[in-house]
Design a protein around this nucleic acid. Sequence first.
DNA 1: CCACTGACCTGTCAGC
DNA 2: TGCTGACAGGTCAGTG
Length: 283
Amino acid sequence: MPELPEVETVRRGLAPVMEGVVIAQADVNRPDLRWPFPENMAARLTGRRILRLGRRSKYILADLDSGETLLVHLGMSGRMLVSGDPLGRFVHDHPAPEKHDHVVLHMESGARITFNDPRRFGAMDLLPSDAPQRHPLLSSLGPEPFSNTFDGPHLADRLKGRKTPIKTALLDQKVVAGLGNIYVCETLFRAGIRPDRRCETLSRKAIEALVPIIRDVLSEAIEAGGSSLKDFRQADGELGYFQHRFDVYGRENDPCHADGCTSAIKRIVQSGRSSFYCPTCQR
DNA sequence: CCACTGACCTGTCAGC
DNA sequence: TGCTGACAGGTCAGTG
């Protein structure tokens, strides 16, 4: 579900409750999510202090004092909810257990982190902290959108001559990490480019101009606490608010937001996924 | 290497 | 009310 802004929002919510704190107990309620959990995951988490909570693309990475890092992916419907923090930053009482609470971390502080994922497209794994990039899920990821290695020339080189639609290319995590369906649609609206436009027909200048737009869209979404459609919640259970600012995503037949434009937003399906765009503003 | 398809799961909603 | 089918934020394996 969650794209980079939602994952970053969750990470920021979890960090004050998890960083520097020992995992007193780990409940692992089933053998797998999308893939089997690593061997003895509960035992490898129990008693370990979390040194730092990081993020790479849509993955949350918790460095442990054992030299291992816990990798968490929220898939489409995953949530990580905090309850019962005694320091009062999270006032929520522990909720009653729910159907899809697959992993529960009981922190030494009294806080509890519940991983709930109805569709089970999420994942957890343990990897060596000193070489996270060797993990198969991380090894072929492209640059982080906010890093210095993601810039106009990189993107232009990466897309040069490709016949694939720009929408598909921006969803490709090897090109840039962290974009998903929502933020690609919003980016292309701001850029004035139709989602079905083939990369090879775009000028180098037009491709380079996408870089600051991608950063703007993502940082505005992080600022708003992500986007809540059906499932997404921040770590404290609150909704995100960026969905109120969508220009195109989910707005089929609604009026275009651009000044003076009287067109309605269109929806098309590209490689099995919906794309939304304004047929007048995007060419 | 590139481009496309189907698969993994469950829940929700629209339409009949 | 109840059934059916379409659809959902992601990503991988398999095919040509």
